[in-house]
Design a binder for these strands. Structure first.
Lengths: 158, 158
DNA sequence: CTGTGTGCAAACATTTTGCAAGCAG
DNA sequence: CTGCTTGCAAAATGTTTGCACACAG
């Protein structure tokens, strides 16, 4: 499994353009801004988050949420973004050009923390070996309540 | 895939009844059938899957999908079922009465091996602690190719 | 120029809510 | 009896599609 290394925006953009060319698709300003925005904000976005952020940062650009959906799907099909479904608040997207990591998710506020633990990965390999599996990838999501939400749980009484 | 069942239905049903009583809620046949169906079919259900299955197996019972949603939410809030989001479109639910385990999944033949590794769980707790999270549960799925499929990959040329 | 891309509105899909009647406790 | 529960219909969300015009290549 070849994990695309941390690239800079130029490289990412080139990859995107190459992808478009390969499929006889066109490079448009909407598509560029979507990619750029994903790059500049390394968070997890719902399509709507992304749409609103773009509208805010680029008041000049006309863009519809339809285009955001279509572009995210295009990017996902081509593995430039990854989508995760965290029970809370729908499906979220992030650029896949980051090094591998897993997620810690707050079930109350939806906050997401990324982490990476080489020891866990080692143990996963070991388990795979025991069962004679050749691992390709994995999915690990830890669900819980973040500090803030724990505090507000104690503090509030409705 | 062996199904681990160390709760029997009676216990589960009692837990459910206790829960209802505690909240001054009522024990209805719809709620019972939903729980029973989840118990008898240890798969992952979308609300609609479950609704259709119940309609099929209990043609006499009137039930609406609304009730399925409401009951699943009730069960989830009280940790009797867990919801997982696998890929596209759909939150899926399963009973949480199985002992905790994770999955090793063969991407070729679909074989699923359940495993449990206390060391990994420890490390997960540690990560949660670092980020001040109180863990509720987690999802870990390792994807790979099982021994048989690795062998047949070598042997066969389609 | 050609054919893809876009925004808009409408269509879909999924989940939640308001309501009047039904039933558990 | 009381008031929670139910199914239905309608509403609220979230996502996709049809279409005519815009524009990249």
């Amino acid at each position: 499994m070849e994990q695309i290394e941390n690239f800079n925006y130029e490289e990412l953009l080139e990859a995107f353009k190459a992808l478009l060319k390969q499929n006889s698709l066109k490079f448009t300003s909407q598509r560029e801004i979507i990619l750029q925005t994903l790059y500049q904000n390394p968070h997890h976005f719902t399509p709507e988050d992304l749409y609103l952020l773009i509208k805010e940062n680029h008041p000049d650009l006309t863009i519809g949420i339809t285009t955001v959906y279509r572009t995210l799907n295009l990017l996902e099909e081509n593995s430039l973004v990854t989508s995760l479904s965290f029970g809370i608040n729908g499906k979220k997207f992030e650029l896949s050009n980051k090094p591998h990591h897993d997620h810690l998710i707050c079930q109350k506020c939806g906050k997401i923390i990324e982490f990476h633990d080489p020891k866990i990965e080692q143990l996963q390999e070991k388990i795979a070996k025991i069962h004679d599996f050749k691992l390709t990838h994995h999915l690990m999501q830890l669900y819980g309540i973040c500090k803030k939400c724990q505090e507000s749980e104690n503090g509030e009484n409705s």
